[in-house]
Design a protein around this nucleic acid. Sequence first.
DNA 1: GTCTATACCGAGATAGAC
DNA 2: GTCTATCTCGGTATAGAC
Lengths: 187, 187
Amino acid sequence: MANPVRDQILEQAASLLMTRGYHGFSYRDIAAEVGVKTSSIHYHFPTKEDLVMAAVEEYSAEVARNLRMIDTTLAADMQLQRYAHHFGLMRGAAGDRICLCGMLASDIESLPESVRVAVQSFFKMNEQWLAAVVERGARDGTLRGSGDAEADARALFGAFQGCVLASRLFRSSARIDDVVRAWRQAQ
Amino acid sequence: MANPVRDQILEQAASLLMTRGYHGFSYRDIAAEVGVKTSSIHYHFPTKEDLVMAAVEEYSAEVARNLRMIDTTLAADMQLQRYAHHFGLMRGAAGDRICLCGMLASDIESLPESVRVAVQSFFKMNEQWLAAVVERGARDGTLRGSGDAEADARALFGAFQGCVLASRLFRSSARIDDVVRAWRQAQ
DNA sequence: GTCTATACCGAGATAGAC
DNA sequence: GTCTATCTCGGTATAGAC
C-alpha cells in the first residue's frame, strides 16, 4: 500500500473534488499533480464516474473510521466537539476544501444515480451517528434537543455542511464552532 | 419590463445555476431554452462572469424583498417558519434547485473574487435578518438561543443551506422543516 | 502499466453581415 | 439586437506502441 500511482490519483481526485467540484477539474489537473499522463488515469479509472465513485467510497470509509474513533463514553457535547474538529480538519491546509459529499450533493443533478445513492449513504451514516449523540445529550443534559432525535440530527448535520461552506466562503474557521455552541445546553 | 430577451436569459441562467452550478451549464443550454443563438447571449452578457454577477444581484434583491415582506410583529418562531417557507419555494416545481448563493459558495474556488464578495453579502444579509429573529425569540420565548445571537444566526443559516441541499439529495421537502423544529423552544 | 498520438466534441468568445 | 460562421481551447476518451 506504500504509494502506488493509483492511490495518488485517487487522493488528488478527492482533493480536487473537495476544492472545485465535479465539473471544476479535469484529468489533466490530476495528471500534472501526480506526474503521469491522462491516459494512465483512464487505465485505472476508465471514466470520470468510476473515479468519482471510488473517491466517494474511500472518503466514506475514512469518515466512518473517524466516527468510530470518537469515545462514546464522553459527554454528548464533547463528542459533538470532536465531530466538529474532524469536520474542520477536512478543510485542508489551504482551507479551500469542503466535505466531498457535500460538494457532490451540490453537483448531484448532473451526476449519475449511483453517485446519488452513495452520497445519500454518507449523509445517513452521519445523521445516524449524530442522532445517537443527540439522544445521549438529552439524557446527560449537555445538549438541547426537540425530542425528535432523528429530526435534530438532520438539522445538525445540515448545519455542519452549511457552516463548512460558509467557513470557506469567508475564509474563517471559526464558523464551525458556531454549530456546537448553538446546540450545547446552557448550563 | 414585459419579457425582453435579456430578462429571459437571466432567468434561465439563474435556474441553471441553481440546478447544475457554474460549470454545469453552457451558453448553449440557455440559448436552446430561450430560443436565441449563443452570440445573442454574449451581446447582453459579454462573459460568463458578467452573466453570473447579474444573476446574483437580481437573486439577492429578490430575497431581500421576501425578507421585508415577513411581518416583524409576528412571534419569532412564526417569522422563522415564513423564512423556511421561502427557502422551500426556491427549490422549484421539479425540486431540483438549491439556493443560488449556496451553489455559488460550492463553486467559489473556481470563480472570480467579485462573485465571492457578492455571495458573502448575501450570506451576511440573511444572517443579519436571522440574528434579529433569534434575539426576538429570546425575548418572546418562542426560540431557544445560546445568548450569542450572531453566532446562532450563522449556525441557523448554515442549517438552512445544508438542509436544502439534503432535501434535494433525498428528494424530500420535509427536511427544511427540521430546522424550524430544532430551533423552536419546547413549550 | 505507462506512454504518444489522436479522435471527437463542446465550451466560451469574436467578426461581420443583416 | 440577432444572426451565420468561425476561432481557439480544453475536455473525456481510445488505439496501439513499448
